[in-house]
Design a protein around this nucleic acid. Structure first.
Lengths: 348, 348
DNA sequence: ATGAAAGCGCTAACAT
DNA sequence: ATGTTAGCGCTTTCAT
C-alpha cells in the first residue's frame, strides 16, 4: 500500500533502483549493466568500473522476479518435509539431513528453503508453490507410504529427488542408505559372535526404512540357516519409549534371546533400559546393535554398536542428483544407495 | 537445457500454459482470464465458466514470477534462524515456534519458508534473498547479540519482526515472552514457600532470554529485601548437560541453598539429576522451578514446576505484526511482550 | 462486463 | 565492446 512516489529527476534516487537508473548514472546502456551484474567477460574495464561505482552508489540490487521471468530459473531449491507429526522437526536425523543439504549448497549459488507439509492442505500449498516456479527443484523427505506429494511434484515436472527410497517401486530419483545391507551386516555380526537367538526390534511398517531393516535381518537369518521365528520380532515406532516397550514385549515372547538388532538408535537406548530393568547384562547376556539415526550411540551405557549411515555422502548425492535434474542432464530416475558400515562399541 | 520446443498450433498444448493460451481456448481476452484467476467480481458467469474450464483443461498454473513483477508481492514470508550452532534445529522450542508460525499462516494465502544462517556467508545469502524480493517479510530468530542480520534486513527496508527482544535497545518490531516477569514470579513463588536461600541457574549472557531471566530473579530477590549473593548464581548454557554441571557448581558454592530457579527446562532436568546425585531431595530439601522452553516438564521426576510461555499467542502476534508491516499499516517498531504464567508441579 | 495497451525489471539475441 | 530491440507472463488503467 501507500506507494512511495519518487521523482526520478536528476540526482533523485528511487528506493529500489533499477538497471536503467544504474545505466544512466554510469553513462552506459542497460545491457552493459546487465553484463556487469552477470559477470560477462565482454565488458571493458572502464565500463565495468563505472557500472560498479553506480551500483554501489545506488545500492542497486537486481530484482530476481524480473530475472527469473526471463531466465526461467530462481536459483532456489526446496527441502520439503512431508510428515504429519510435528515433532519430527526435533528429530536429529532430520536435523542432520537439513544441515548436510544446506552445507552442500553453501558453496553454490543456490539458496535452500525449507517447507513443511503436515496435512493435505499444506501439501497442496507446497505443490502450488513449486509448480508456480518458486523453486528450481525439490528434495523431498516423505517418510510414509500414503504421501501424495511425490506424485504431484514429479507429475508436474518439478525436478525432484527423494531422500529415502519410495515405498512403492515408482520411478523417481532418490538417495537412500543401504538399510537392507546395514541390517544384514548387523545381524551377521551378531550371528558371528556365536549368538543363537538373534531377535530384532523393527520400525513402523509404513516406513520404508523400517521395512528394509527388517528385511536385512530376515535375510541374514535365513542365510545362516536359521528359522525366522516370529517370536524374535517386535515392532517399535523408532522412538526411545517405543523401543523400551517393544524390548519388554520381546523379552516376554522370547526369554531365551541372546542378541537383538534394533532398527534405530533411539529405540536401542530404550531397549537398553528395558534389558537392564529385566536384569539382563549387555552384552554378556544380550548383545545389542542399533541403527544410527540420531547419533546417541556414545551417550548411552554401554556405548552402542551401530550401523552408521554416511550422512555427508547422502546429502552430497542428494544435491548432486538434484542439480543434474535441474540442468536437464540427468538420466531418468537416477538413484543412489549409500553404503552403511558397522561401528563396534561395547554393546556387542 | 534441452529446451522443449512446442508448436502452439491449434490443439497443441505447451507444457506450461500461459494466460494467453487460456484466453484463446476460452474465447476471451487475457484481462478476463486474469480477472477470473484473481477472483474479480466483474466477470460474467458465462465468461467465468468458460475460463475455468479452459484452466482445468490446460492445467494452467499462474506464473508467480510474472505476477510478482507487477504486484510487488510474493505471498511468501521467511522464518530465518540465525544461529551458528547446528543442533538448535533439534531444539524443541525452535520446533514449537516453527510449528506455531506455520499454523498461524496456514489459513492465509502466505507460504512460509524456513531459512538458516549459520555463518556470515549464509547471512549475506539470506540478506540478498530477502532484498531481491523473494519474500514479503521476515520473522527472525536471532539468538545472539552479535548478529548482523537484524540491522541488514531492517536497513534494507524488509518488513521484519524479531522473535525475541533484541539484545540492544534497537528500534525494531519484536515479540517476546515476558522473561523478566516470569523469572520474577518463579522466584517469588519460591520465596513465598518460605525458602531462605533461593539460588538461580542462568543461561548464557549473550542471549537476551538468559539475561532477562536472571534479571527477574535478581529483582525478586532484591524486592524481598534479600542480598543478591553471587554464590547463589551459576551460569549454564541452556542444555541439560550444562544444567547438571552448573547445579553441581552451585551446590559447591552454596551448600545451604534450599531453592533454585533454573532459567530453562532442559537445564532444570540436568539440575534435578545433579541434586539427586548430591543426595538432595526435591522439593523437600531443594525446591526447583524451571522455565519451559522444551516442554519436558512432565517427563522428569519429580514433574517440574515451570514458568510457561504462551507459544500460540507469541506466534500469532509474530504473524500479526508481520502482516501489518507488509500491508504498510504498522506503527514503527511495534512490540509485544507476552505474559508467562507459573505452572505448579511436584518439584516446588 | 470486456478488451486493448502499457508496462513491471530484466536478459538475450541481434546489430553495429 | 556496446547499444537496440524484443520479449518473459502477468496486472492494471483506460476505453468501450
Amino acid at each position: 500500500m501507500a506507494p512511495v512516489t519518487t521523482e526520478l529527476t536528476s540526482g533523485a534516487r528511487s528506493a529500489t533502483p533499477t538497471l536503467d537508473e544504474v545505466a544512466v548514472l554510469a553513462g552506459v546502456s542497460r545491457a552493459t549493466v546487465s553484463r556487469v551484474v552477470n559477470e560477462s567477460p565482454k565488458v571493458s574495464p572502464e565500463a565495468r568500473e563505472a557500472v560498479q561505482a553506480a551500483i554501489a552508489q545506488l545500492h542497486y540490487v537486481p530484482n530476481r522476479m524480473a530475472r527469473s521471468l526471463v531466465t526461467r530459473r530462481t536459483d532456489t531449491v526446496a527441502l520439503v518435509l512431508s510428515e504429519p507429526n510435528t515433532q519430527v522437526f526435533s528429530d536429529p536425523f532430520f536435523a542432520s539431513i537439513v544441515h548436510g543439504v544446506s552445507a552442500a549448497l553453501a558453496d553454490t549459488e543456490l539458496t535452500l528453503v525449507l517447507l513443511t507439509a503436515r496435512d493435505a492442505r499444506e501439501q497442496q500449498k507446497i505443490a502450488r508453490f513449486a509448480r508456480q516456479g518458486h523453486v528450481d527443484g525439490v528434495v523431498l523427505m516423505s517418510l510414509h507410504s500414503e504421501d501424495l506429494l511425490p506424485d504431484v511434484l514429479s507429475g508436474a515436472g518439478v525436478p525432484l529427488v527423494l531422500c529415502g527410497r519410495p515405498y512403492d517401486g515408482r520411478s523417481v530419483a532418490y538417495v537412500d542408505a543401504d538399510n537392507v545391507g546395514g541390517a544384514r551386516v548387523a545381524t551377521e555380526h551378531l550371528l558371528g559372535l556365536g549368538r543363537r537367538r538373534v531377535a530384532t526390534l523393527t520400525g513402523p511398517t509404513d516406513m520404508i526404512a523400517g521395512v528394509d531393516r527388517y528385511l536385512g535381518w530376515q535375510r541374514a537369518t535365513e542365510d545362516a540357516g536359521r528359522a525366522v521365528d516370529p517370536s524374535l520380532v517386535a515392532h517399535g515406532d523408532f522412538t526411545e519409549a517405543g523401543g523400551e516397550a517393544a524390548m519388554a514385549r520381546l523379552l516376554a515372547q522370547a526369554p531365551d534371546l541372546d542378541a537383538v538388532f534394533v532398527a534405530s538408535d533411539p529405540m536401542a537406548v530404550g531397549a537398553l533400559r528395558a534389558l537392564r530393568a529385566a536384569g539382563r547384562r549387555v552384552p554378556e547376556d544380550v548383545a545389542v546393535v542399533g541403527f544410527d539415526d540420531a547419533a546417541v550411540a556414545t551417550t548411552c551405557d554401554p556405548p552402542l554398536t551401530t550401523v552408521a549411515q554416511p550422512l555427508d555422502l547422502m546429502t552430497g548425492e542428494l544435491v548432486e542428483l538434484l542439480r543434474r535434474q535441474i540442468e536437464g542432464v540427468a538420466a531418468p530416475a537416477e538413484t543412489r544407495t549409500c553404503p552403511t558400515r558397522l561401528v563396534r562399541r561395547a554393546s556387542a
